[in-house]
Amino acid sequence: MRVTVRFFARLRELAGAETVSIEVTAPATVSTVWQAVTQAAPDLVPFERAISCAINAEFSRMSHPVSEGDDVAFLPPVSGG
């Protein structure tokens, strides 16, 4: 199935794109999606323990299942304010 992956801030720069469309095999979780994108962009790997994720603009967990057409976002540590 196909999902859209969205990157922010330094993750976006390291991934080289704001969004990418990738194919993952069902059943898949956010973690499966992360594994797939880090294979294509190994520079992202060091962030593994310091990312937050969202599915369709709702905070989620790496263990959460993803569905066809989902928009999965990976967020580096935040620095607003």
Binding site: A9, A54, P77, G80
Partner: peptide, 24 residues
């Protein structure tokens, strides 16, 4: 500062840096 998905990118006279604080 703990949880808002906002990121600060600083530009200096001699370079730039993303600021990374809390894991939201």
């Amino acid at each position: 500062k703990q949880i808002a998905p906002v990121w600060k990118h600083e530009f200096f006279g001699d370079g730039e840096a993303w600021v990374e604080g809390a894991v939201a």
